[in-house]
C-alpha cells in the first residue's frame, strides 16, 4: 500500500496555488490535511500527477476568526483547532458538537475543516453541519473568487461544482443567533467511525414558536436540509415533531451496505432526529 508517484508542489501563497492549478488543471489535486486523500493514494484507488500541498502557505491563520456575523475558517484550520476553540463553541456550538464525532485526535490534528467540507463524504459530520448552518465556501482561481453556498457545493458523494482550476480558501459560517439552539447526534459502530446515521439539528425560537431544521449524514444524500413545520414551544416533544421528522426521513434515500440496511438507517434517523431536535429546542429556549 504505497502511493503511485506524483510531482509535489509546495506553494507559499494562495496566488501560487491559483497559478499551479491554472497550469495543471485536472492533473493536480489539492493536499491539505490529507486524512481522506492519503489513504486513497496509499491504496492506489486513485492517483494524481501532481499534488499541491497547502500546508506551507505563508501567513495562514491556524484558528477560526469572527468577521462581522460570520465565522471564517481558512484552509489550514485543523479540525483539532476548531474543536478546541472556545470561540467556536460560543459562536457556532454546532461545529464543536459535530467535530467531537470526527475520527480521532491523531486524525483531527492534521485534518482541516475546509478539506472535509470540500471532500464531501455523505457519511462525514462536517458537510452536514455546514449545510444546516447554510455556510458558504469561497472558491478561487486565477480568474477570481466566487462564493458557493454549501448546499450548491456538492453534486454527489465526493463530487463538487469546483472548476478544474478552482480551490477553496475559505469557509464562512453564520454565527449563532440568540434564539437558536443546536444539537448533533450520531451513531457509529465504533467511536470515531464514519456515521451509520447522524443528524444535526437547529431550532429557532420566536414568538413562542419553534422552527426546526435538520441535516442528516450517513443517509445517502449530501447537503440537504429539511425544514420542519413550526410548532408551539410546548409541543416540541409532541406528535407533530414525530410526523414531521417521519416525512423528512421518508425523503432520504440511504442505501443498504455492510453495516446497516436502509430500513435500519431510517429508524435511526427518526430516533436520533427526535432527541436531537428536542435537545436543540431546549437550548434555543434557554
Amino acid at each position: 500500500m504505497k502511493p503511485a508517484p506524483f510531482a509535489y508542489h509546495r506553494p507559499g501563497s494562495r496566488e501560487e496555488v491559483d497559478q499551479l492549478l491554472a497550469q495543471l488543471g485536472s492533473e493536480a489535486k489539492i493536499l491539505a490535511g490529507g486524512q481522506s486523500l492519503i489513504p486513497i493514494l496509499n491504496m492506489r484507488l486513485a492517483s494524481f500527477g501532481h499534488l499541491i500541498d497547502l500546508n506551507h502557505l505563508a501567513g495562514e491563520p491556524a484558528e477560526p476568526a469572527v468577521a462581522g456575523d460570520e465565522l471564517v475558517l481558512g484552509p489550514l484550520v485543523r479540525q483539532a483547532a476548531a474543536l478546541e476553540s472556545a470561540l467556536v463553541a460560543e459562536v457556532i456550538p454546532l461545529l464543536s458538537q459535530a467535530l467531537r464525532h470526527v475520527a480521532h485526535p491523531a486524525i483531527r490534528s492534521r485534518g482541516t475543516v475546509v478539506g472535509s467540507v470540500v471532500h464531501g463524504d455523505p457519511a462525514a459530520e462536517l458537510p452536514a453541519a455546514v449545510a444546516l448552518l447554510a455556510g458558504s465556501v469561497r472558491a478561487r482561481s486565477r480568474r477570481g473568487t466566487r462564493p458557493i453556498l454549501a448546499a450548491e457545493l456538492w453534486t454527489g458523494a465526493l463530487e463538487n461544482t469546483l472548476a478544474e482550476d478552482e480551490w477553496v480558501d475559505e469557509l464562512r459560517l453564520p454565527v449563532r443567533k440568540a434564539d437558536e439552539g443546536f444539537a448533533f447526534e450520531e451513531f457509529a459502530r465504533r467511536s470515531g467511525d464514519y456515521a451509520i446515521c447522524g443528524v444535526a439539528a437547529r431550532v429557532r425560537a420566536a414568538d413562542g414558536e419553534l422552527k426546526a431544521a435538520v441535516a442528516y449524514l450517513g443517509m445517502g444524500g449530501l447537503g440537504h436540509v429539511h425544514a420542519l413545520p413550526p410548532v408551539a414551544a410546548e409541543e416540541i416533544d409532541g406528535p407533530g415533531l414525530h410526523s414531521a421528522l417521519t416525512e423528512a426521513v421518508a425523503e432520504l434515500d440511504p442505501g443498504d451496505d455492510l453495516h446497516a440496511s436502509a430500513r435500519y438507517r431510517r429508524w435511526l434517523a427518526l430516533e436520533l432526529g427526535l432527541s436531537c431536535v428536542s435537545r436543540a429546542a431546549e437550548r434555543a429556549l434557554k
Binding site: M1, L31, Q35, I38, P39, M43, P105, A106, R110
Partner: peptide
C-alpha cells in the same frame, strides 16, 4: 490507512498518523 494508530507520532506536539503524511 489511518485506522490502527500504530504509526502515531507527534508532529508539532500533536499526535498524527505518520502513514498519512508525506
Amino acid at each position: 490507512h489511518g485506522v490502527c494508530g500504530c504509526c502515531t507520532i507527534l508532529a508539532g506536539g500533536r499526535p498524527a498518523r505518520s502513514c498519512l503524511m508525506f
